[in-house]
Design a binder for these strands. Structure first.
Length: 870
RNA sequence: GGGGGCAUGGCGGAACUGGUAGACGCAGCGGACUUAAAAUCCGCAGGCCGCAAGGCUGUGGGGGUUCAAGUCCCCCUGCCCCCACCA
């Protein structure tokens, strides 16, 4: 060995990636008899065609976790797939006249190559693609499970209609400005017959089981809880009266969380869309009510949720009787009452609800205070409505009770007298899964005039998407235009029937893909129960916070339903969840025009100016995006520095859950670090050092001081890195520890040899392996540890800490005087409290700062400090 | 309006159950090597005062608990995220 080869990541990485493929190194581990299994999962990507930095961050994090678990002896499942149905493919087909399947497959091929270039330890034999029939066959099969369980149903619904994409949108696909999240078009309302999944039937479980998910970020759990939005209260009945005040035999149901305020209810309000409205409108009020309803229905989402929300309404000209106080109350409709929450009707309690207060003030409806706030809150309750609890007044026999006691008492009375009962309401709505689109999973149902809605028999699955659909982007659902496709025989009576032409929301496909990875080639079932129960729940799920609500909620819902169907034996799919932060980049913007400027057009980065106008630009970090010209292409970074540098940088720059600011200089820094390790190992090779594969025997009594120090550095690093990778993932500090170790090895490289040096190099390379797998493999080979070619560094066991290597004879003892650090002493590690106090009091530091006086108090914290208080 | 989170050098970020704040890196500065530059190696580095020894000060602001607070409690300010007329 004479010439020192340079670190050339491109050639080296290509070589090892090929080698790993050839040796099947990343095949899913068979769980060892004595070890456990570990399922490391990244949220699968939509195959847009381009890998971006957010993907890189996601997959590298999961990869490191998977690699560490393998080295710890776990059988590891680390798969990848494609969330491949969806609008972009259909839009590409519309724009370019190409087949969406072809477009998607091409994108998958190019993204797969990019992913493989990152050196991820993915088992590609388990790859799944949701738009392939061997996958969506089972999406359809699972839909039929929902149908069979009575959890899938059709109903006419007012839906969000996107006039550009010609499709129905879920509420969550409409932004706060009332525009489609994809097309940006203003969303209209339409009535259509739609398929729904009854997720609200599982609302309680989905909410209550959040408590079990202690491996999830707190904020994701709160977001889900808020989304489900359970509130407990009562449904109360207000009897309708005729013109003479006599009961007319019917009643109006309202939902309230505050039955204790019922004596303060002075009017009743319905949503304008409430179907009772026409019947309750008096002759005289018909015109104004009609006008008002028209006005509201024309109102866009935007207007209804505008900053200062006006509350407008109109009286219907009819009345109900307050079932508690017996008073007559007028019935109104108002735009602040939501048709699809509770019963679409509320009791107006101006004194104790802020919205009712505003509304009643405007229309001069009577206000009656029935809750007296606690003395301490009297001042706060001065203006507006008092919405807290208190003591009841003006409330008949309930006066004098606390809000809490009154709620219970009033509910009991309501139940006994037949005018109400306890009730729970949810913000969560049933899940609308129908899409009038081509590029989705067909809903496997047949509509027969005789037999009704029939499931497609399992033997006829999958219902394949027809080829040659007209994807002009006009005229509604493409499938509905292919008569030859939708004309079928009824599976029951055999008469001509019509196939369902809606396809499923793509969230359906992604709600169970993590189950399929456990048994991806099964042609009989979506998955075998033993396999799914073996690998799942997912031990570590990694993905973006943008899926905190919908995807994760739907996946949990699927899991619970499938458990109830006996298809699997667990009820939460993801044990631990890591939501990684965004990747941001330096962004240039012209503050006058508001336009973004590409860094390529900037002459002097020290003084960035608009190339056209010369206006000084503002700079800030923002999420990478094409429209902001701040994207950094992963491929270019890999071409230049190699995948290992890219991996190291992205892990080191920020903790995984925080946003990460891309910085080329820091990428260089990581490249330098890998080069330093390369040279360190090279120098050792030049000295003839080789790693022995057999266990290293070290007699600690015969070591030099330098060797003792080196061993301490090695085992400190092992301890710290192991800790950083054991669940509370801190890849940034783990890499910092690797740097410290390499610095220490550099310092001691002349003075350590033999087993101690061997141990150090073996540990360094193994600890590096999950982060920079290619470099570690190469160094492992160069140090002679893989002569057979079958002893890959990635098959090594994670190193163990030797506590004796960490032991010290003396440690620094901090001396504080009155809580301020004044110096430190080296003291024997096993010194007792009395001698530590003694040492501190006799020290020069004590002499200097106590000026001869005896301290009034001495606090001794063994192993840390002595605090002398004068 | 409701809920959740964050605030530490020029920058990204460290800091165990309260116990030497600023690990590690980036940028910077000084030195070595070089004709020179790059690379590499050695060193310096929160701020203020001081030639130095050293001292004072310092984790968004204000109060508190404690021998001791970045860490715990209360109030305030600023920023980010989610939900939002949910009765």
């Amino acid at each position: 060995m004479s010439e020192s080869p340079r670190y050339l990541p491109q050639a080296l990485e290509a070589h090892w990636q090929q080698r790993w493929r050839d040796t099947d190194l990343h095949a899913t581990g068979v769980t060892p008899a004595d070890g456990g299994s570990f399922y490391a999962l990244s949220m699968f990507p939509y195959p847009s065609g381009n890998l971006h930095m957010g993907h890189v961050r996601n997959y590298v994090i999961t990869d490191v976790i998977a690699r560490v678990q393998r080295m710890r002896g776990q059988g590891v499942l680390h798969p990848m797939g494609w969330d491949a149905f969806g609008l972009p493919a259909e839009n590409a087909a519309i724009e370019r006249g190409i087949d969406p399947g072809f477009w998607t497959d091409q994108n998958i091929a190019s993204m797969r190559a990019q992913l493989q270039r990152l050196g991820l330890s993915i088992d590609w034999d388990r790859e799944i693609t949701t738009c392939h029939s061997d996958y969506y066959h089972w999406t359809q099969w699972l839909f039929l499970q929902f149908l069979d369980a009575g959890l899938a149903y059709q109903k006419d619904a007012s839906v969000n209609w996107d006039p550009v994409d010609n499709t129905v949108l879920a509420n969550e696909q409409v932004d706060s400005a009332g525009r489609s999240w994809r097309s940006g078009a203003l969303v209209e309302k339409r009535q259509l017959r739609q398929w729904f999944l009854n997720i609200t039937a599982y609302a309680d479980q989905l909410l209550d089981d959040l408590a079990k998910l202690d491996g999830w970020p707190e904020r994701v759990r709160t977001m889900q809880a808020n989304w489900i939005g359970r509130s407990t209260g009562a449904e109360l009945q207000f009897p309708l009266v005729d013109g003479e005040g006599q009961p007319s035999g019917t009643h109006i149901r309202i939902f309230t969380t505050r039955p204790d305020t019922i004596y303060g209810a002075t009017y009743l309000v319905l949503a304008p869309e409430n179907p009772l409205v026409p019947r309750l409108t008096s002759l005289a009020q018909q015109a104004p009510v009609q006008d008002f309803c028209n006005q509201v229905s024309r109102q866009s989402e935007q207007e209804r949720t505008a900053e200062a929300i006006p509350k407008r309404g109109v009286a219907l000209g009819s009345s109900v009787r307050n079932p508690a106080s017996g008073e007559l109350m007028p019935i109104w409709i108002a735009d602040y009452v939501l048709a699809d929450y509770g019963t679409g009707a509320v009791m107006g309690v101006p004194a104790h609800d802020q919205r009712d207060f505003v509304f009643a003030s405007q229309y001069e409806l009577p206000l009656r205070r029935v809750i007296v706030p606690p003395t301490s809150d009297r001042d706060a309750a001065g203006e507006g409505a008092w919405t807290g609890s208190g003591v009841l007044v003006n409330s008949g026999r309930f006066s004098g009770l606390s809000s809490e006691a009154a709620t219970a008492a009033i509910l009991t009375a309501a139940q006994q007298e037949g005018w109400g009962e306890p009730r729970t309401s949810y913000r969560l709505r049933d899940w609308l899964i129908s899409r009038q689109r081509y590029w989705g999973c067909p809903i496997p149902v047949i509509h027969c005039d005789e037999c009704g809605t029939m499931p497609v028999p399992q033997s006829q699955l999958p219902v394949l998407l027809p080829e040659g659909a007209n994807l002009a982007g006009k005229g509604g659902s493409p499938l509905a235009q292919i008569e030859a496709w939708w004309t079928v025989d009824c599976p029951q009576c055999g008469k001509q029937a019509r196939r369902e032409t809606d396809t499923m929301d793509t969230f359906m496909c992604s709600s169970w893909y993590f189950l399929r990875y456990s048994d991806p080639h099964n042609t009989e079932l979506p998955f075998k129960r033993e396999l799914v129960d073996h690998w799942l729940p997912v031990d570590q799920y990694v993905g973006g916070i943008e899926h905190a609500i919908l995807h994760l909620l739907y996946a949990r819902f699927f899991t619970k339903v499938l458990r109830d169907r006996g298809l699997l034996g667990f009820d939460e799919p993801f044990k631990r969840l890591l939501t990684q932060g965004m990747v941001q980049a330096l962004t240039y913007k012209n503050p006058q025009s508001g336009k973004y400027v590409s860094p390529d057009d900037i002459a002097d980065p020290a003084d960035p100016r608009d190339p056209l106008s010369g206006v000084p630009l503002v700079t800030f970090y923002e999420k990478m995006s094409k429209s902001k010209y701040n994207g950094v292409d992963p491929s270019r970074v890999i071409e230049r520095y190699g995948a290992d540098t890219a991996r190291m940088f992205i892990l080191f720059k920020a903790p995984p859950e925080k946003d990460l600011e891309w910085d080329d200089a820091d990428v260089e820094g990581q490249y330098r670090f890998l080069n330093r390790i390369w040279r360190l190992v090279d120098a050792a090779c030049q000295r003839g050092l080789q790693i022995e594969i057999k266990p290293i025997e070290i007699d600690s009594r015969s070591l030099s001081d330098a060797e003792v120090e080196l061993r301490r550095a090695v085992h400190t690093a092992i301890a710290a890195i192991s800790e950083d990778l054991c669940g509370d993932y801190q890849f940034n500090t783990a890499i910092a520890e690797l740097m410290k170790l390499s610095n220490a090895m550099h310092t001691h490289q002349e003075s350590a040899s033999g087993p101690v040096a061997c141990e150090a190099f073996a540990s360094l390379i193994i600890l590096l392996a999950p982060f920079a797998p290619h470099l570690a493999e190469e160094l492992w080979l160069r140090m002679g540890a893989n002569q057979s070619g079958e002893n890959s560094v990635h098959l090594q066991t994670w190193p163990r800490v030797d506590p004796t290597a960490l032991a010290k004879e003396t440690i620094p003892l901090v001396i504080q005087v009155k809580g301020k650090v004044r110096g430190s002493l080296q003291v024997p590690v096993d010194a007792d409290l009395a001698s530590l106090e003694e040492l501190a009091l006799r020290s020069e530091i004590a002499e200097k700062w106590l000026e001869g006086k005896a301290p009034s108090r001495v606090i001794v914290v063994p192993g840390r400090l002595v605090n002398l208080v004068p």
